[in-house]
């Protein structure tokens, strides 16, 4: 389908067309912005940089009940997922992170929980015309209008949004809203392309990743790991706010006789991550744990799935309490190669 135009005046009507589906959109103010279910009848304002908390919980909730059971009984109850969800205004880096994480959850076998959600979720993206301070998506294979992982991409052209379907789901959305849309002419498409070029030019941080994935294992005992992890507090800010971090733990939670088995986010920056029952921990200090965070994203994942597990959203840089900066770490890695 060709590119379509939506007059912004018709934006609330467009959102109204999504009846029957739960809509998630960026909500809150300023720094507290995060994706949350929208109240019925609301149309979200899409003027924002990026949410503090990435929308990954739409596919990979921080706490997910895998099944419920009762003490003394043998049957288990598996929660049914059926609600269709539309995520409105997802930034291209966050959508790309979902495409990257798909690799992990389909490794050898498809994860039924993740892919059931994947099937139920429609991702409507919003191209970035004003990149944030620590954005470096263009250094890791993305871009301000990357469509990877998205079903539909919107670009803000002032009075209009330019809508481009990426998948069948996206095309269906456009069909449903057909009477609100008009076909975009070549000028509008060119306007978008120019906007995106300018946006790319406005990205200030960059990184040359060449040689890093292959070179990282050779730096296993390099003193740089001690240096870059010395100030690390070992909190979960960088990993919990990372759109591609996907480590989880499975724990049983019991209340009286009822219990549930849950999958919950884990963080390689925590002390009990990979702590063995014996008490041994192969990653005993923050040096090994920081090394793991970088290696997992920039080496192991590349080795396994041929893509860097970092989308350059800059959240870990923005929000680290002690200014541990992944771009700086990788520059030091480059120098040490």
């Amino acid at each position: 389908m060709s590119a379509m135009l939506l007059n912004k005046e018709k934006w609330p009507e467009f959102v109204g067309k999504l009846t029957g589906k739960k809509i998630w959109a960026p909500q809150g103010e300023g720094q507290e912005m995060r994706f949350a279910p929208l109240d019925e009848g609301d149309a979200p304002a899409l003027e924002y940089g990026n949410t503090r908390v990435p929308p990954k919980q739409a596919l990979f909730p921080q706490t997910e009940t895998l099944f419920r059971f009762q003490l003394g009984r043998e049957d288990v109850e598996v929660p049914e997922l059926e609600e269709e969800v539309v995520l409105l205004g997802v930034r291209p880096c966050d959508a790309r992170s979902m495409a990257i994480v798909d690799n992990l959850f389909s490794w050898e076998e498809d994860d039924p929980y993740y892919f059931k959600r994947r099937e139920l979720v429609t991702l409507v993206g919003l191209a970035c015309s004003e990149p944030g301070l620590n954005c470096f998506c263009t250094s890791v294979g993305g871009g301000p209008a990357s469509t990877e992982g998205l079903d539909l991409l919107m670009t803000d052209l002032g009075e209009h949004y330019l809508l481009e379907a990426v998948t069948e789901k996206g095309e269906n959305l456009l069909k449903e809203a057909g009477d609100l849309l008009e076909e975009a002419d070549d000028d509008k498409v060119k306007e978008k392309e120019q906007l995106i070029e300018e946006s790319k030019g406005a990205i200030k941080r960059s990184l040359d990743t060449e040689g890093i994935p292959e070179g990282l294992p050779g730096l296993w005992e390099d003193p740089l790991w001690q240096r870059v992890s010395a100030s690390c507090l070992g909190c979960g800010t960088c990993t919990y706010l990372c759109p591609t971090c996907h480590c989880f733990d499975i724990q049983d939670e019991v209340e009286g006789f009822a219990a549930r088995s849950c999958r919950m986010w884990d963080s390689c920056m925590f002390g009990e991550y990979t702590l063995h029952t014996s008490g041994h921990n192969p990653r005993p200090t923050r040096r090994e744990r920081t090394r793991n965070r970088i290696n997992h994203k920039y080496s192991y994942f590349v080795d396994k799935f041929d893509v860097i597990a970092c989308v350059g959203c800059g959240r870990c840089v923005n929000l680290c309490p002690v200014n541990i900066d992944i771009v700086e770490i990788l520059k030091q890695v480059k120098e040490a190669l």
């Binding site: 908390v53 921080q62 909190c235 963080s267």
Partner: peptide, 12 residues
């Protein structure tokens, strides 16, 4: 309700 349990408050 907003807490993401990153424990940065505890660790810092």
């Amino acid at each position: 309700a907003d807490c993401i349990r990153c424990y940065s408050c505890r660790n810092v």
